[in-house]
Amino acid sequence: MMITGPSMIPSIPSIRSRNMQNWLSRGAFYLLVILIVLGCVGPFAWQIITSIKPARELTTLPPILPSQVTVEHYIRVFERPFGKYIMNSVIVASATTIFCLVVGSFAAYALGRLRMKGKMIILSMVLAVSMFPEIAIVSPLYVVMRNLKLLNTYPALIFPYTTFAMPLTLWILTSFFREIPAELEEAAKIDGCSPLQAFWKVILPIAAPGMFTTAILVFIAAWNEFLFALTFTKTIQAQTIPVGIAMLPTMYHVPWGSIAAASVIVTIPLIILVLVFQRRIISGLTAGAVKG
């Protein structure tokens, strides 16, 4: 390990020089830690500061910190139909999550636990789909949805979202199902359960944390999606928050305060999710890749 503290540094004859080196490497290490945290959180902190600065202080630097805290930008955001954007985002992201989890959990159970041929082929196919460029499928989907009069509706987003959400669901859930010890299932079968009953009564309750992790990841992915939302919705009927924020600037005026406030409103729920479920999210994110 490079500079991860004393235990990793090979012993050096003189005690004095070793202490010196420990102290130095420790200092460099914590400096790096501070840089990482500042680098990750700093830019967003600046967005939060901007959102509570009085309008006249937005166009002067210094001061970096506001002379007084204001909520005017937040009020201004909700003078627009911002609540509708939020509602649309909640509906679309929840529906995508529920749909993918319900349909995906059966498939992931089969792929993770049942004896069948072609599992690897199916999983690699699904992985390949998750690598499709979104823009590559936009043109036919647009034409079809226009003909079916689906543009500007929730299904116009929920169904295309399955193209990235379903592969995500299948990969993460399959790896979770695979980790459940086979003995549990065997025991259920000896007790007279069919595979479906075993799935329902034994596997599903154990897999609940994995399902939950998957749900968080799918929800965040759907919540943040932009290209499909921009393409398939042109009115406030179904537009989601990312599109709403992207459209706040007009030709002549960029309302930086409102944009900052809107960004904070959209991001805070995600940051809370991340802080509360940190471990789960990391395990879900790396589940596919580590075994890959």
């Binding site: 990750c40 830019p43 944009i259 960004s263 990391i282």
Partner: peptide, 25 residues
């Protein structure tokens, strides 16, 4: 733990917000 949590912040932020944020910076 705090470092790991802070590292997840950029990952969780919507891309559109990332862009508007940097545009302002």
């Amino acid at each position: 733990g705090a470092v790991r949590a802070s590292v997840l912040v950029p990952w969780a932020i919507p891309t559109v917000v990332t862009s508007t944020m940097w545009k302002w910076i």
